[in-house]
Design a binder for these strands. Sequence first.
RNA 1: GGCGACAUAGCCAAGUGGUAAGGCAGAGGUCUGCAAAACCUCCAUUCCCCGGUUCGAAUCCGGGUGUCGCCUCCA
Length: 493
Amino acid sequence: MSLTLHNTLTKGKQPFTPITPGRVTMYCCGVTVYDDCHLGHARSYLGWDVLRRYLRWRGYVVHYVQNFTDVDDKILNRAKAEGTTMAAVSERYIERYFEDMRRLNVLDADEYPRVTEHIGAIHELIGQLEAKGYAYGAEGDVYYQVGQFADYGKLSGRSQSTLEAGASGRDLATTAKADPADFALWKGAKPDEPAWDSPWGPGRPGWHIECSAMIRARLGATIDIHGGGGDLVFPHHENEIAQSQAASGKPLAHCWLHNGMVTVNGEKMSKSLGNFTTIRDLLDGRWAEYPQPVDPMAVRLFVLQGHYRKPLDFTKAAIAAALSNWQTLKAGLLFGDRHGANLGWPAPTSAPSSATRQTGETPWVERFQAAMDDDLNTPRALAVVFELAKGLQREHNRLTHGGDTPENSAQLCQQWQTLVDLAQVLGLEADLMAEEQTGAGLDDGAIADLVQQRQRARQHRDFATADQIRDRLAVVGVTVVDQPDGETRWHRQ
RNA sequence: GGCGACAUAGCCAAGUGGUAAGGCAGAGGUCUGCAAAACCUCCAUUCCCCGGUUCGAAUCCGGGUGUCGCCUCCA
C-alpha cells in the first residue's frame, strides 16, 4: 500500500516516492498580504495542512515551506490609500493570516519566506536566466522569453501557438515584450514606488520569480510536492517551471497538486468579483448567509467532506449541516475525556497535534489509510471517523442520559484512541475545557439547586414552573433529562 | 473561441465492471405531564439523457444536455 497523489503534470494519480526516502519537501504558494484571507484560502491551506499531517502520520519527515508575497501592486495600492508603507500593510496581514489559520487549526509551516528577504536570490536567478539566453531586458524591465523554453505549457496543457492566439483582448501596445506570452521577471521602478537596486536598474521582482527563487533558496532545485490553488496552474506555476527548470536544468517539483475552487451559492468567489467572504467574517457570524458564529472545526469538517480537487460550494445549508456533523464528532472525541476515568481507562493518550501515529493496525486504521492513500480521499476517510464517533456518541448518550455502563469498555477505549488519532490527522480536535465553558455563570451547585426546584414543582404538578426552570437552564446550555424512574439528570450541552 | 473539470436520494458525499459507504435532514415507534434530549426502526430497484460493449455498467466506449473553472489579478 502506498500513497498515490494526482499530479497535474501527468494528469493522473501516481505513487508518491520522495526524492530522499523518508523525507518530503513541499512548498505551497502562500498569500499576497494585502487583505484578510477568504474562504478560498481556508479551503486551500486546510487541504495542504491535512496533506502535511498525513505525511507525518505516515512516518515521513516533512519540510513544509509556504511563502508570503509582500511585494505587489495591491499591497502598494493599499499602502498608498492608507498613507502608510508596503511593509506596514504586509506585516498587518501576515499577523492576521496567522490568527485565522490558527483558529482553523492549521499547523504552522516550517518556514515562511518573504519576497523582501530574497531580493538577492531573485537577482541571482534572473542573472542566470539572462546568461543562458532565457531572459532579455527592455526599457528597464526584464522579461522571460517563453519561446526559448521547449516545455512551456506542459503543466497547464496548452501549446505556445494557442497562447499567442489567445492573447486577444489584451492591450499589447503598452508593453515592451518581444512576444505577448513573455512575462516580467523584473519590473523597472516607476516614480514614487518602492524599488530595489539591481543589475538592470532599480525596480522590483515580477510575480512568478519569487517562488522560483525562494524554493531554490529554502528547499533546493527539485522538491517533492508543490501545491496551490487550481487558478495558479496558469500562468503562475507554468512560469515557475519555466524559470526554475531553465536555470537549473532539473525538474522543479515531482508532484504538482492543485485544489478546486470555492464557490458561494454556486457562484465563483473571487476578489475581483468582490463577493468574497473572509475567514474571520464566517467564523465570527458576519457572513450574510449564516449570520451566527461558526465553530472553526465545523468549517474544517465541511471543507474535508469534499475532495480537495473538486469545487466546494459554501451554502447556508452546508454550513448548518457541518455544525451538526461536528456535534456528533465532538461527542466521540470527548468521550474518553469525559468518561475515561470513570471507566478505569489509562490516563489519556490522546495525541497532541502533529504527532505521528498513535494506534496500531486495526480495520478502522486500514480503511482510513486506504482512503487517504487514494489521493487524500478525505470524504471516504471521514466515513471511518464517523463510524467510530457514532458508536462513542451512542455510549456517551447512554451514560449521560441513563447511567448505563458500557459492557465493552476495553474495546471502546481502543475505539476512542483510534478516533482521536485519526481525527487528529485531519486536524479535527475537540477541547473539553472549552466545552465546559458552556453554561458559564452558573456553577454546578446553582444548577443542581434549580434542578431540585424543578423537581419539587413537578411533584406538585406545577408544570408551568417546571418548564420555566428548564427553559432557563437551556438558555445557558444546560440540558435536563427526566428519567423514567423519576430522577432528573442534567448535563452541559 | 481555446483548454479542462464535474453531473449519484431533500442536502453534502463515497463508489473506477459484480449488483448503491458515511454524514446531515426527514418519517414512524419507545420513553415522557408535555416538549426537548435519548434509544430502536425506516429512508436511492437506482446513479443527467440516448445509444453501444458485456453474462453483468453508476462504473468502459460513442453522442447529447447541463453546471462550473482556467485562458487577465486571484488559493
